[in-house]
Every structure is written in C-alpha cells, then in structure tokens.
Design a binder for these strands. Structure first.
Lengths: 192, 192
DNA sequence: CCAGTTTTGGTTCACGTGATCTAAAAACCG
DNA sequence: CGGTTTTTAGATCACGTGAACCAAAACTGG
C-alpha cells in the first residue's frame, strides 16, 4: 500500500553481517553499512532500526546461516568422529582462507560487546548453546554406540571438545599452518 | 634540562593497557585515556605519540607483565603437569573474576586489529611465540623425564595444549562454571 | 637575569559519527 | 484526481574524535 521496497532483506542482512564480521561493531560506521548495502542511510534506519539493532540482526543472520551449518555437520549420519572432524575442518578452511578471515563472528562479538550489551550477550549465548547441544547429542550417540570413550559423561566431554574447537579458532590466527592444525584435530579425536 | 615529568610511566602505561583491554581500541577515545591516566591530551600525546602508538605500548606492557607471568608459571621447578595446570588455573581465575573480565588482551587484539595493522600483528605474534616456546620447553622436559607421553613430538603436543588453553579462555565467557572448566583442564592433563 | 628546552594545561580544528529531518517517489484506494 | 502510506534519496544536526596548536610552567646553563 506504500511504496514497495527496492532491497532484498536477506541480501542486505548478509552484507551487513559480513561487514560487522570483518570490521567489528565500533569500527564500522553507518555510512560504511549504507555503502556496502547500496541503501541510503535513512532507508537502512527505517527498515532495520539503529546501528545496534542492525548488529543484532547480523548476529541472528549468522545464527541462521553459519550456526545452522555447524549444527548440521554434527547431525549428519555417519561416524560421530567424522562429524566432529568435519566441524573442525570447516573452521580451519574458513580460518585459513585468503584473504585472511575474521574468525567467528560470535567469538568476536563475545569479546567486543557481550560484556556491555545484554542483548548481544543473549544472541552469543544462543549460538553457543545450540552448537553445544548438537555436539553433546552427537557425542552421547557415539558413547552409546561404543565409538567414543565413556570415561566422562557427555556434558563434560562436550566442554572438552568445545575447548579444543574454540582454541583451534584462536590458534589458527597465529599458527596458520594447516598440517599443525589438522594434527591438533586428529590428536584430540584419537583420544576420544 | 626541560620541565620534569609529573607522571610515572609505568603507572600510566598500566592504566592505558587496562582501559584498552576492557574497551578495545576503537571504543576507547583519547579523552578516555587522558581521564584514566589523569594526564592532559597533549601531555599523553607528547610523551607516547598518537593513539595507535599508545596501543602498541599497551601491548608491550602486557608482554612485560602478563606474558611474563604466564611463562614464569611454565618455567617453575616441579612436575610439568602442575605447571601447565597452574597456567590454566590462572586463566580461569582471571576469566571468572568479578566484575566480568575481558579475557586476554592479546587474543582481543588479534581479533580486533591484527588483520589490519602489521605492527599489532607483530606484538601479538611475539606474545604467542613466547608462551609457545615456554610451553614447548616444559613439555619436552616432561617427555624426557617420562612424566608426559611421547606419542607426538613436543611441537605438535604444544599446539594441542595451546588449543585447549585458548579454547578455555573463549569457553569461560559462555560457560562460567568453574567446575566444568577445571574438568576440561584435568581431562586434558590426564591424557598427556 | 635571559635563552633554551621539555612538559603541562587548555583550547581549537577539521572531520567523522549516529541519527534526525524533509521532500519526493512509488504504490494503493476511492 | 486527491489522499494516504511507505520507502527512497539527500541533506543536516549535534556531538564526538584524533590530533594540532598555543601559552605558561618548570627546569638547566651561561
């Protein structure tokens, strides 16, 4: 009934997510966002709200895309160790890409904003919880089938694997040696 | 020969480091820094250079203080596993402190700036390299004494432990449960 | 005392920033 | 056509920002 929108919401949110991912919240200006989306400042603001709300939308977009991919990798059929391995290989692929990657948007957000913005903290927690749940389900399945050690319960084991996974993402920034990173993965998996 | 300085360099750099650590580079203004140090804008600038140079000085201050503590923990006499454990317990203590901690300045810097600023990247690398070296020396010692498995060489083992260590720092942000984190540490150590 | 040097304490400059405002465009309906 | 609504396209506002500028203070040496 009013003028139709000229932009595609998904495409815009993806562009916004990518820019926040690459630059972080503070170093990204609303004019940067307008430019990367090809929209005017007020159009962006009218459609999505202020800068912070755009950021929250970007985090939710990440949840729909990257978080979903991560949980899917864990939910595939097949040996659990292969699934966990796939999760980690995917992270290594991203982190060693050229041009240099910006790691994981959620980790970045947890560092930059989660301490001061409760709603960002909530989006961060949602992502982590989702991945953790998928991983725990997979590991529990592996324990039931005997593929994976029953030394500890699935919850503790999940934390253990998560710590390796997140550490891998940090390590990839300073040790961009694929063989070394893959070795970390394989060592960890061999001990499950 | 000119007017004497009124500030204590170490105290100022520590205050600057703490503020950058808490807020990140972009979200910290030069006026914030002036206020936290009790110095005027031009005094700060005349003494230390522009904002970016202050940041580099903060990273170096971190190296002299926190990085040094980390390597000392690894270089202490006594069982190697205890030393590694001490390193991780220290991290957990920091990360679970109240008010909420800002994690590790170097990890934060690697995410916020190391992709775009070569000199920051260099300071980041220096920190990581120093900790890695100390850890490798400790692990190699543990292998020689038979305390630690010889399944893999010390370099690969170092990467493995580092990935757990850095992951622990990320995990602590979203899973602030001391027992769970300690369990990750003890599980990892038990498998060395 | 004066000149020179360094530091301090403010002030100001030239932009950049997030957000607001305004008018026109693009649609629909009666 | 006029009225209404939503969106677009610019422009502008009120601050905030990093850094430069200026004068006075505090020291040394001749």
């Amino acid at each position: 009934m009013g003028r139709p929108r000229k932009f595609d919401e998904t495409r815009v949110l993806t562009a916004v997510m990518n820019m926040f991912w690459q630059r972080g919240y503070e170093a990204t200006s609303t004019r940067d966002l307008a430019e990367t989306t090809g929209m005017g400042l007020s159009s962006l603001s009218n459609a999505f709200g202020d800068k912070r709300q755009l950021y929250l939308r970007a985090l939710r977009r990440y949840y729909e895309t990257n978080t979903a991919v991560q949980t899917e990798l864990l939910e595939q059929p097949g040996p659990v160790k292969d699934r966990v391995r796939n999760l980690m290989v995917q992270a290594i692929d991203i982190d060693l890409a050229n041009p240099p990657s910006s790691g994981c948007l959620i980790i970045n957000a947890s560092i930059e904003m989660a301490n001061t913005d409760p709603e960002v903290a909530q989006e961060v927690r949602r992502h982590f919880t989702t991945v953790e749940r998928a991983l725990r389900a997979a590991l529990a399945e592996g324990q039931r089938s005997g593929e994976i050690t029953r030394d500890q319960d699935a919850v503790a084991l999940t934390h253990h694997v998560l710590s390796s996974y997140y550490g891998l993402r940090v390590l990839a920034r300073v040790q961009p040696d694929r063989a070394a990173l893959m070795n970390v993965v394989d060592t960890m998996l061999a001990k499950l």
